[in-house]
Design a protein around this nucleic acid. Sequence first.
DNA 1: TCATGTATACTACCATACCAGTTAGGGTCA
DNA 2: TGACCCTAACTGGTATGGTAGTATACATGA
Lengths: 241, 241
Amino acid sequence: MERDQERPGLRPIDMDSNEPVARRVFRELRRAIVRMVFLPGQALSEQDIADQLGVSRQPVREAFIKLADAGLLQIKPQRGSFIVKISVRQVFDARFVREAVEVAVVARAAAEATAAQIEEFRANLKQQAHAIDARDHGRFMELDEAFHRSIALSVGCDYAWRVVEETKAQMDRARYLSMPDATPLPRLVTQHTSIVDAIAAHDAAAAQAAMSLHLREILSSLPELEKRFPALFNHDIPDPP
Amino acid sequence: MERDQERPGLRPIDMDSNEPVARRVFRELRRAIVRMVFLPGQALSEQDIADQLGVSRQPVREAFIKLADAGLLQIKPQRGSFIVKISVRQVFDARFVREAVEVAVVARAAAEATAAQIEEFRANLKQQAHAIDARDHGRFMELDEAFHRSIALSVGCDYAWRVVEETKAQMDRARYLSMPDATPLPRLVTQHTSIVDAIAAHDAAAAQAAMSLHLREILSSLPELEKRFPALFNHDIPDPP
DNA sequence: TCATGTATACTACCATACCAGTTAGGGTCA
DNA sequence: TGACCCTAACTGGTATGGTAGTATACATGA
């Protein structure tokens, strides 16, 4: 048996593609970090990753820098690079920004969304229900992200969604941690439905309230997670630069 | 006379410092772009900048990539890197996100700010008035930024401020463009004062409304600027990747 | 046993060299 | 004169070499 099959790790970078190697390395690493393939606290070496992926150190270095900007990797000069531990403070900060942006977006959606777009949202909701029936948590998380994204893009808030995406990275690590037991997914679908209903009714205030409530509940299990996986969390205050 | 005195350009990077060269190059370039030392549309070469700053291409390249992420530079592989033209669409998108975040921040400030912090805000307001009396526009913009930052940091919204900083870069280029004639600065101080008053009264709704109004007016002169400096603006839709 | 100095094996950072793709200009040929 | 092609001089992307700093294992000493 191939060991790579059992433990996902990192697959070699797909050659013969126009896309810069550095960008693909970044995406692959980011995916691995968010999906907890690399655990918080773990050290990552430019040389190691370069060898595993079959590329030189240079693109790996560029990917490292972008990961550091995204708050997923801490580069300690002349010492090493480490997956940042999940910080409850940091996750809640990200949630705060995400709520601010998505609440503003959904208000615009309630004012501007067309019937066709609302139908699209509802179609996604049906798929979410199917994914739950099939016990396919990974699929549900993809649909969840697509749901929020489609709302933002439907009203032209591309840049706003880009900001949300960055904040999501922090939050999603915690969500992947809680995946097996799973937060009650049907409840999330109910909340999603409330959001769409408010948009369809062109009730901005209700849409904002529904989105706000939804985003506040997503992380309700965070304190419990911190107790269950203390090694993956950063409890103290971060050291200044 | 030194030519460097007349045309700011780029000064050589300060040696003997622990801070990574790449970061300093990034800051210097970002400052130059936001202050319109490099004009939108202008080509920037990694090699040129490296020579001007007295460093190698490597840290310059890293700075370029970060500038591209910030939406200030467009890197066209094998062709060149160009200061992105100001896009009205992009500036308004940034403004939308900034308003969403700062409105949420100021609501929290209205709920939590202490008397000492409010005094600090008012002290800044006085300095703003002095800067206007002294016709020191540059100083005013610094105080303006410090004002918004101090509100965010006073309630622990460090990450939120980081997001705002990114959005500000887009907006500030337009503001520097309108600097000489100047938007009516006393009006901005009045709006700032309204915000502080609402915070002091612990009236979250009023604070939100004041901040929202303030951020909407900042760019009221943007369409006029586009007419006066058409070469610096990007009028068409951006070409897909 | 414990504290301390030192050699070594890392790290990330920066400089340099090479590569492939693009562009612009000049010369050639119809 | 005009369309074409080829060459040379760029561009950014990648690979590699060298340097300074840090952590650690280990030997040495009290």
